[in-house]
Amino acid sequence: MATLSTQMNIIVEKTKNLIQLCDALQEENDLLKLEVQSLQVAFQTSTDKVKQSEEKLKAMAVAKSLEEPNTDNAAINEKILDTKQKINDFVREIDRCIGLLK
C-alpha cells in the first residue's frame, strides 16, 4: 500500500494538472468570447448595410415611379398614395430609431 506521502504527491500532481487544464480552457474561452464579439460586430455591420441598401432601393423605386411620363391620372394618384405611405414608413422608422437613442 502506498504511503501517505506518495498519495499526497499524486494528489498534488493531479491538482497541478487540473489547474493547468483549467488555465488552458480559460484562455480558450477568452479567445472564443473575443471571436463571438467580432462576429457580432460583423453581423451588425452587415445588417446595417442591408437595411441601408433596402432603403436606397425603396427610394429608387419611388423616384423611378415618379419619373414615368406615360401614366394616367389614376395611376398617378395611386403612386402618390404609395409614395406617401413610404414616406410615413420612413418617418416611423426614424421615430423608432430616435426612441432607441433616448
Rank of each mutant, 00 (worst) to 15 (best):
M1C: 04
L4D: 04
T6S: 03
T6Y: 02
Q7G: 03
M8P: 01
N9H: 03
I10G: 04
I11H: 10
V12D: 08
E13H: 05
K14N: 08
T15H: 09
T15Y: 07
N17R: 10
L18D: 06
I19M: 13
I19A: 13
Q20E: 14
D23K: 10
L25D: 07
L25H: 06
Q26D: 09
Q26R: 10
E28G: 01
E28K: 07
N29M: 09
N29C: 07
N29P: 00
N29R: 13
L32V: 01
L32P: 03
S38L: 07
L39E: 02
L39Y: 00
F43V: 00
F43R: 00
Q44W: 00
Q44C: 01
T47K: 10
D48M: 06
S53M: 05
K56C: 11
K56H: 11
L57K: 13
K58I: 12
A61Q: 10
V62I: 15
A63W: 00
K64T: 10
L66H: 09
E67H: 04
E67S: 10
E68N: 14
P69A: 06
P69C: 06
N70W: 06
N70V: 09
T71C: 13
T71P: 05
T71V: 15
A74N: 15
A74S: 15
I76F: 04
N77P: 03
E78L: 14
E78N: 14
K79G: 09
L81G: 11
L81M: 14
D82Y: 13
D82P: 07
T83K: 00
K84R: 13
Q85I: 13
I87R: 03
I87F: 03
N88T: 12
D89T: 09
D89F: 04
E93H: 11
I94C: 05
I94D: 03
D95V: 11
C97S: 14
C97G: 12
L101G: 02
